[in-house]
């Protein structure tokens, strides 16, 4: 069945939309950063899924196995994970600084304070 066969991709789409929604709808900056992270993770899943070959094993050279999954996306996603972690760390660090400067991490309250400035 097509739907079930594309199960992983559905997960990707759902995760992506959840992340995207959180980024847009949440006023809390920490939650926003986490939404962003969920969004990125969905892409990791996309890459991992596409590398899977039916009946394939992990890509280890061995005479017993002829079919194995494509290892390249895994490597790429390792890089992307590093980038994701760095982004999240930087984002959270900025949130800490914002909390120090504004005394809040709610977007509305920050905008209120900024609106008072020239």
């Amino acid at each position: 069945m097509a739907f079930a066969g594309l199960y992983n991709y559905w997960i990707v789409v759902v995760l992506m939309m959840i992340g995207f929604y959180v980024v847009i709808a949440q006023g809390n900056l920490v939650k926003k950063i986490f939404g962003l992270n969920i969004f990125q993770v969905s892409v990791f899943v996309l890459y991992i899924t596409m590398s899977k070959v039916d009946g394939g094993t992990a890509p280890i050279l061995d005479d017993r196995y002829q079919v194995y999954s494509n290892p390249l996306p895994h490597v790429l996603i390792l890089t992307a994970i590093v980038v994701g972690v760095a982004t999240m760390a930087l984002g959270l660090a900025l949130v800490v600084r914002i909390r120090e400067a504004y005394g809040t991490i709610e977007e509305e309250e920050i905008e209120q304070q900024e609106g008072e400035l020239p």
Binding site: V23, F39, G91, A101, L117
Partner: peptide, 15 residues
């Protein structure tokens, strides 16, 4: 405001 500007850029840029 540089902080909020940077964070906004971070979110948009990462997206």
């Amino acid at each position: 405001r540089a902080l909020t500007a940077a964070l906004r850029y971070l979110i948009m840029g990462t997206l």
